[in-house]
């Protein structure tokens, strides 16, 4: 018995030693983070509407997720473009394992967000990353109202167009400082796709084929936590405007006619989202 306890202890110690330390090779200290954009002063007047970004964490094997889909869909019908939704299928979860022969909607970027928020069951949602996670089934309208009711600090607009001659798209984000924002800000761009058909586990436990998955996160174009907002010489003074341009090459397997670009500005430290905008790909 004594020897067994010693063996167990040294076994755990050995496992611990193996897990103790990551080693990064010198040529990998710095890695590509995602598009950073080229920044300019801007003169364009943009819409200063406060919008809300809802990120829904979901999976094709999550039986309560279709209920959340319906609720979010109805809420979007009510609020229109003021509510921007993205459905995140975090890679690595049992709930997001694709059915045999079906497309994998799992996202590594989604997993990074999921792990940072600490979700391990779905559906879960956040509005503007205000720190309050919730199951997006009940009391949804009041949360959206609260998010939309704040005085906007930033105005944001985004547009994108396909480039002729190649498969890339050009994305332009316009930022307007409606009030002085002293915090460091990040701009995050992502691409989502509607109308992906998969099998989905339903609330009654059945598997529904031909379920329509919408707003599916395909890729975060910038770094997963966004690229720093270059405030320019005005340093984010009230009334100043900035513009950033990005060139992005989408995956050939995505249906760009069903894709949207979502842009949001967030506080770099708290991750809270100040405002968001969305556009289709023309």
């Amino acid at each position: 018995m004594k020897k067994l306890s010693h063996l167990i202890f040294f076994g755990f110690s050995f496992i611990f030693l193996l897990a103790a330390c990551d080693k990064i090779e010198e040529n990998e200290y710095v890695v590509f983070a995602g598009a950073a954009g080229t920044w300019y002063d801007d003169s364009e007047n943009i819409d200063a509407t406060q919008r809300a970004f809802i990120e829904k964490y979901t999976g094709c094997r999550c039986k309560n997720c279709p209920t959340a889909d319906s609720v979010i869909h109805e809420t979007q019908q009510h609020y229109g473009s003021r509510l921007v939704a993205v459905a995140i299928h975090p890679k690595g979860s049992n709930y997001t394992i694709p059915y045999s022969g079906e497309p994998d909607l799992g996202s590594d970027d989604g997993k990074t967000w999921n792990d940072a928020h600490g979700f391990n069951s779905y559906p879960q949602a956040l509005i503007n990353r205000n720190g309050e996670a919730f199951v997006p089934i009940t009391n949804f309208d009041s949360r959206v109202e609260m998010a939309l009711g704040v005085t906007p600090q930033m105005g944001i607009a985004v547009s994108c167009e396909r480039n002729s001659g190649n498969d890339s798209i050009t994305i332009t984000a316009h930022l307007s400082f409606l009030t002085q924002v002293s915090a460091d800000l990040n701009l995050t761009l992502l691409i989502s796709e509607d109308g992906i058909v998969t099998t989905q586990k339903m609330p009654d436990g059945s598997d529904q084929v031909n379920y329509m998955q919408n707003h599916v996160l395909r890729d975060v174009i910038t770094d997963v936590w966004g690229t720093p907002v270059d405030k320019g010489s005005a340093n984010g003074e009230t009334g100043s405007r900035r513009m950033a341009q990005f060139t992005y090459l989408p995956d050939a397997g995505w249906n760009l006619n069903q894709c949207h670009i979502v842009a949001f500005v967030s506080n770099r430290d708290t991750k809270e989202i100040l405002n968001v905008a969305e556009c289709g790909i023309e």
């Binding site: 330390c21 990551d22 990064i24 710095v30 983070a33 770094d223």
Partner: peptide, 23 residues
């Protein structure tokens, strides 16, 4: 050993540090 989730530390525009999560 310390484990800390990944965060983004930019070294230059478009490039970030590849951080060891377990130190």
């Amino acid at each position: 050993s310390r484990y800390e989730p990944d965060t983004t530390i930019f070294s230059s525009p478009g490039y970030k540090l590849n951080l060891p999560l377990n130190v």
